[in-house]
Design a protein around this nucleic acid. Structure first.
Lengths: 332, 332
DNA sequence: GTGAAAGCGCTAACAC
DNA sequence: GTGTTAGCGCTTTCAC
């Protein structure tokens, strides 16, 4: 093998491959040359069996793939993760977690195939991931919906979380409507089994509670454009009037706008809109939407960074909250 | 470990874990129980080192992540892949291939971390993947742009490809415009370093060649909505009139529609449109678009199936072409 | 600085 | 059907 060609021992080859400082320049170049001519690539399985390191990190994705992929939010977060990991020795892998075969995902994660895992878009029902951190370094992008689990389910290990203050964000977005003279504010909320959906409704309620308005102008969507469409239709069908609406995602807002247009309702003339996510949808709808911008790519960088530190045994804060900001456009 | 608790040998444990038929029911239950109480999960590295199998398959994704994710095409293909793999013992992993650190991807792929790879959206410039199939079972989703490589680069190993007939598809879509009375047909083509972009322009040219029209009404986009917007602006800026346009992707068509609307040009009144990809954009733009539907999820299933067969040493056709169909809507 | 020897945790012949 | 014996290809003490 390589050792023979380079005229050294396997140990030295290993040292060169792993960039050990205690090797003669001569040995390094001999080994490097041998590796080159032989096209040698070390076997990862053998490596990680001996060293107990894989240098790969998984981002876990619920199989729910279609929804996942079409949301620019994830694309940006993953871009951030990839960016940070590009500067490290870690390789990024996205693991499609089939809900029909959870044991496959578990085997992969617990079986030592990765050094750590990143979990995005955590639903209330996949509580299994909450226990994962007792056997593997794990960081959640967005607060997991764990608080609703029964108390007798045993202790929840301490989980590391990087999040955005969704409650504050939606309160800000809703207040913005009030400050601009709107009096009856509706909302299209996201799924209540996702923290972002839940928290943004809480934030809307908080802002509404400061007014005399009845807090019942709520419809639910699934964060997608079609979801926003049907929620908007439902809201209009109730026959109650409103002159402002906070929509929990720009994709839903995009769908909602189509319905509003269909009904001849003008934005912002008749109804003002604020939403969350400064993506293509918010920027390119008609009119462009006033929205809350989340630092998505930065969140990706942050979770990746946190996980790498965790893997290296460094101590890191359990919770990190990233700032959001409001961007004014023509929908109010 | 498990063997001790179950009162059997390690071999028997291994046999149970690997569902060997030659084990006593009694032994099976004893081992299963022991595994359960110990929470034992076999170490994948050790397993694959000994068996030379990983049971994981990678889909390689160019780092270009943002574009990748926001395209429903990929979401559907991957959904198809995941669906098929869900029925097998293989785990699916999406590998983000950083263009800045190609050696990381190579190490992962060549280092025995996966049993095979699926390659989507192949660009002309990443010719390295073409050589991959000499060391690893590989299947391309969509024809790779290999034909442009220099002849002295050595032999290209035979690659397995599952594709859609993009030339025929775009010829059909362009002819459809001609058959519906349009006389001056423009096109917004995709990137020419991607097979889908290249072939769809070829198909448009083929249809145009059957007419007296000058084949110069071409603008290029990058398959995204903003790309479609600027291509449309460019086309209009030329001042040449046209009454039909074939747009190489519905996402570009979506962007183009905005520009048309801005200019007060009606669709299909002034300009008729046909495009490719029957996704949310084609279905929900105003007006809904006449388009070519590709069997995306089926293509995902097909490439996964092909790869698994390849891994199992079965013989499979090198090229498989999937059918497309035209869907009539209100844009013509 | 470098080599020799000893495993990492499992599977795979091979006997029994 | 089950245990025994060898490795899979690397990293890692430990001497030198």
């Amino acid at each position: 093998m390589v050792a023979a060609l380079a005229g050294v021992s396997r140990s030295t080859v290993s040292r060169v491959v792993n960039a050990s400082p205690r090797v003669t320049p001569g040995a390094i170049s001999a080994v490097t040359a041998a590796i080159e001519t032989l096209g040698y690539v070390p076997n990862q399985a053998a490596r990680s069996l001996a060293s107990r390191k894989t240098y790969t990190i998984a981002v876990i994705i619920p199989e729910n793939t279609a929804k996942f992929f079409s949301d620019p939010y994830f694309a940006s977060v993953i871009h951030g993760v990839a960016t940070h990991l590009g500067n490290t020795e870690y390789t990024l892998t996205l693991l499609i977690a089939s809900e029909a075969h959870p044991e496959k995902t578990r085997r992969y994660l617990q079986g030592g195939s990765v050094d750590g895992a990143l979990i995005l878009s955590h639903h209330a029902d996949d509580s299994s991931y909450l226990q994962l951190s007792s056997t593997l370094p794990v960081v959640f992008g967005g607060r997991p919906m764990s608080n609703t689990r029964p108390a007798d389910a045993g202790p929840v290990p301490r989980n590391h979380i990087v999040d955005v203050d969704n409650v504050a964000a939606s309160t800000t977005a809703t207040r913005y409507l009030l400050e601009h003279g709107r009096r009856r504010i509706a909302t299209i909320a996201g799924p209540q089994n996702m923290a972002a959906g839940f928290d943004r409704l809480v934030g809307w309620r908080a802002a509404i509670a400061e007014t005399a308005q009845n807090p019942d102008l709520v419809a639910f969507g699934d964060f997608t454009p079609p979801g926003g469409e049907s929620a908007m239709r439902e809201l209009l069908a109730r026959g109650e009037s409103f002159d402002g609406i906070f929509i929990a995602s720009s994709q839903m807002a995009f769908g909602a706008l189509r319905v509003l247009r269909e009904h001849g309702i003008s934005v912002p003339g008749d109804v003002a809109i604020t939403t969350v996510d400064n993506d293509y949808f918010a920027q390119n709808s008609t009119p462009p939407l006033t929205c809350i911008e989340q630092p998505v790519a930065e969140l990706g960088v942050e979770i990746a960074q946190t996980l790498v530190r965790l893997i290296n045994g460094e101590s890191v804060a359990e919770l990190s909250v990233m700032p959001t900001r409001l961007i004014e456009r023509e929908s109010v």
